[in-house]
Amino acid sequence: MQIASILITGANRGLGYELVSQFAAANPSPDFIYAGCRNPDGADKLKELAQKHPNVKILKIAIGDESSYQTAVQQVTQDVGDRGLTVLFNNAGILTSRSFEKVTAEEMREDYEVDVIGPLMLTKAFYPLLKKAADNSKDKGLSCTRAAVLNMTSGIGLISDNTSGGGYPYRAAKVALNMITKSMSIDFKSDGIMAVSIVPGWVATDMGGPKARLTPTQCVDGIRNNVMAKMGEEQNGKVIKWSGEIVDY
């Protein structure tokens, strides 16, 4: 899988950092790996990684602050030019899990702002660069090596898997993100850009907690080799587990 360029949001920790790390170590590695985070000055691990790998470039992308999106687009455009951006990986998100008795309107709004509106508006900002990548690619089918939008969802956001109730803000936001992914897959298809939602599983990150079944390394290795490397027409618009399994919404 030879990806020319990739932008990963929420890259300062957890799965975002692991994605940047694994792509930086890959052979071949993308020409440009953009690590988006809210506070680059405080992203010490990312800075160390960027020092070791010149193709890793740190961008300030604050999900919810659309002015930061335009600045990031300008920075990426200066590097990639007419080659465009091959992959946009909307990984950044927040998790607010509340019962029916305790959930508040503000919590619902905050999760929706970060986990739904953020990825949608960021994709709109980078769409022209994604289209350039698709137009200039030698690959004419749908694939990650041509142009793709990847949205990090969650098993908690699958209606078919909800057997315990609760979790209102996070569940609702991820369901909405999956619908956005499906619409993107239809709207973008004629331009050669595919879109999928990825379920990372229960991973031992700050969000997943120490009792999780997967390490970040295992999860990202699966995402890269079981999902991204095998993405095509069949996977477009689908929700796919890190293991490569397509699941019901």
Rank of each mutant, 00 (worst) to 15 (best):
T163W: 04
L88P: 04
V116R: 03
E106Y: 08
A133W: 01
R98Y: 06
K132R: 15
M121D: 12
T123C: 01
A134S: 13
S68G: 09
N136M: 13
G118N: 09
I61H: 01
E66S: 04
R109E: 11
D79N: 14
Q78K: 15
S67Y: 09
L142N: 00
E101N: 06
D161M: 14
S68F: 13
G118Y: 10
S67I: 06
G118C: 13
L120F: 14
Y69E: 10
F89M: 04
G64A: 04
M121V: 09
I58R: 08
Y112L: 13
L158Y: 08
T145A: 05
C144D: 07
R146G: 07
G81W: 06
R98P: 02
G155R: 02
Y112G: 11
N162Q: 02
I159K: 02
A133N: 04
T163D: 01
S143F: 05
E106N: 15
L142A: 06
Q75A: 13
D115P: 13
L129P: 02
S137I: 13
I156M: 07
A72K: 05
L129Q: 12
K140L: 13
L130W: 01
Q75P: 08
A134M: 09
K124S: 11
G118F: 04
A72Y: 09
D79Y: 12
E113A: 15
D139L: 10
I159Q: 00
S164L: 12
P119Y: 07
D161V: 04
V76D: 02
V103G: 04
F100T: 03
V80D: 04
S97M: 11
E106V: 11
N90K: 14
E106I: 09
K60L: 00
G81A: 03
E66F: 11
T77L: 05
Q74Y: 05
G157K: 06
Q70Y: 08
T153D: 12
D161Y: 14
T86N: 15
N91V: 02
K131S: 09
L130N: 08
Q74W: 01
L158G: 06
L142V: 02
Y69P: 07
R109V: 13
E110D: 14
T104H: 12
Q78A: 15
S97G: 08
L85K: 07
